[in-house]
Design a protein around this nucleic acid. Sequence first.
DNA 1: AGAGACCTTGACTGGTTGGTCAGGTCTGCT
DNA 2: AGCAGACCTGACCAACCAGTCAAGGTCTCT
Lengths: 197, 197
Amino acid sequence: MTTRIQRRNRRKILDAALDVFSAQGFRGATLDQIAAVAGLSKPNLLYYFDSKEAMHRALLDDLLDVWLEPLRAMNPEGNGKAEILAYMRRKLQMSREFPRESRLFANEVLQGAPRLADEIGGDLKKLVDESAALIRRWIAAGQLAPVDPYHLIFSIWALTQHYADFDAQIRMIRDGADPLEGADAFLEMLFERLLKP
Amino acid sequence: MTTRIQRRNRRKILDAALDVFSAQGFRGATLDQIAAVAGLSKPNLLYYFDSKEAMHRALLDDLLDVWLEPLRAMNPEGNGKAEILAYMRRKLQMSREFPRESRLFANEVLQGAPRLADEIGGDLKKLVDESAALIRRWIAAGQLAPVDPYHLIFSIWALTQHYADFDAQIRMIRDGADPLEGADAFLEMLFERLLKP
DNA sequence: AGAGACCTTGACTGGTTGGTCAGGTCTGCT
DNA sequence: AGCAGACCTGACCAACCAGTCAAGGTCTCT
């Protein structure tokens, strides 16, 4: 049974941990930093989570479901081009809403995905394989230009997540303006042209 | 004056440091790891470089020139679409040849680019601004579809570097196959369609 | 060969960090 | 109020890690 205090503190801790892990990576983050952000003492953190590793795991476990939801939401009955454009829009929206999650994921994969190997090789791969098959059917039905479905999916990931993951770089180049300004229109045009049968 | 031994050992150290920094990030890397990979003792590393930080700096300093060379190589006199396609090809080639450098850079930017702020805000921004102006001229001359030049450049970075930075993920999804297999053809088609006037 | 600069390292240090623990405080229930 | 269990913390520990140093080995040039 979980108490009100437990719920509040676990949430505070995970939120702080997401802040710190996504900005510094697993190894770069310290419990003291997380504790300071969460406004709790370090031993108190370890009262709620067994270890630093456990906090990280908890974040990653939550993450993957949220992360894959847009891909799951593609409707096999819908129009191919429209569905993929909608998927791209949802992914871009996630870079806007959850940039920390995007960076947490990027940090992890960049370092070889040691803690995500099972999930990526399992659920994620399965979902991507299914989506690729779906895209192939759409192509066969003439709803899409004939493109490699895997590279198509990777290109959506690359283009949308780039805005969250490389935010710092884009900001510096664009004089601090919102990195995502104009991104919607650009990606809309890019995928519109790429996918037109 | 630098001796033969100095050249050899500095090279060994930087190569090892690139291995370790690109795989673990700055904070995640340890001098012991780098020493082991380089086949030298830890104090010996510090005989050649003042500090861990100094090794990292040396790598980043080398990196930026190499990294921006393809952008510099765009020829203002050339045909717009052809020049941008050539730029994309060169960038993709760099992901193939220098994946560690790509990941080193990604690690750095992902964490807010603390050690690259000057270079990105300075040289890089200047070069990108000039390139954007050049792209606008090509668009005005009708050699390119009217796209936002900044987002165009970001999209090239995102798509090409993704193959190096997310190598682990792509490998797991594609059953260990070379992540870059088929990437050339896909990106060729993508940018061909995007840029056609 | 011999001098002197250059190169290498085992042993050490001070600071940081993840994690422990004994004992204290608070909360919710009767 | 009083109690049981949940919650919290200062003080501490062991491991790790960047960096130092004194002493000894090696290279190069004459």
